[in-house]
Simulated assay, not measured.
Amino acid sequence: MQNQIHTVLGASGATGKAVTHELKKRNLTVRAVERTTKLGGIETIKADLLIEDEAIKAIQNSSFVYLCVGLPYQSKVWQRDWLRLMENVITACEKTDAKLIFFDNVYMYGPAPLSVPFTEEHAQHPTTKKGIARKNTADLLLKAIAEKRIKAVIGRSADFYGEFAVNSPFYISFLQNMLKGKAPQVLGKKDIGHTYAYSGDNGKLWWHWL
């Protein structure tokens, strides 16, 4: 395993940094892929994963690929870009025989409120544009797995908090307000539970699959 390359797509985001941290703790060879940011201390490749050739170049020679990309939080962007990005990553993994770990969210489950306890067997009938976009993206990957194009697994997380997770609504409206001495705010119904995941824990989920 020490000679294998572990490539993290979207390595500068909260999940990408958490995954990179865990990989480095285990003295594994890490390659970071980012569109604009050059990270210190590890090999970094700048690539736009919406371009197939760049995705293939970024992933070549990889043994494991961690898809941790976070696209801009806009419905039209998700609808336009997620399927193309996933297809390019699948194609690149197929060409290099890399195993793919996709860090997904739970937007595809629905309709809300979700049942308690909540499992991956829950119905997937999303009612939002973002939810539909993520379901279509996950279904594309599941189809590629079923067709034996690649080996892959999907890990799904609820909204997360923790180190580097400064763009989440929970941080902006709740934790950041507390740090400023202001009243924390949360959107939601008081009688419906909401689960949050710690970004550091998310970064460890992949280890059990290797």
Rank of each mutant, 00 (worst) to 15 (best):
A18H: 02
K57H: 11
Q79N: 13
F103H: 08
L141K: 01
T137L: 12
A98H: 00
V33L: 08
E52C: 12
I5Q: 03
L83M: 11
R31S: 05
A47E: 00
T127H: 10
I5T: 09
S168I: 03
S157N: 14
Q4V: 14
A133H: 04
L49K: 03
Y198F: 10
G155I: 15
I59N: 01
N105G: 05
H125K: 14
I101D: 00
W206E: 07
K189L: 13
S12Q: 02
T7Y: 04
E54D: 13
V65R: 01
K24P: 01
W206A: 13
D104N: 13
T15N: 01
T127S: 12
R149K: 15
A146G: 13
L50K: 04
A92Q: 00
W209L: 15
E43Y: 04
K46S: 15
T15K: 03
A112I: 12
F103G: 01
K57N: 11
P169Q: 05
H194Y: 08
N177W: 00
V30A: 04
I90D: 02
K129T: 10
S168M: 10
T7W: 00
A55T: 00
L39W: 01
M86H: 02
A123H: 07
H122N: 14
G188K: 02
R149G: 06
T128L: 11
A183E: 14
D81F: 04
V30H: 01
Y73D: 09
T44M: 08
T20Q: 08
E120W: 06
D81G: 09
P117M: 06
K46V: 14
N27A: 10
W82F: 13
G40M: 11
K46H: 15
I45W: 03
K57L: 11
I42D: 02
Y161W: 15
T128D: 11
K99D: 10
F174V: 07
L49M: 06
A47L: 04
D159L: 15
G10V: 04
K148W: 05
I101Y: 10
A18F: 03
G200F: 09
Q124A: 09
N105C: 07
I45R: 09
R26A: 13
A197W: 06
T36P: 08
V77Y: 00
D48W: 02
K76P: 02
Q185K: 11
L23S: 01
I145F: 06
K17V: 07
A11T: 01
A158M: 15
V186T: 07
A197H: 12
R84V: 15
E52P: 10
T36S: 15
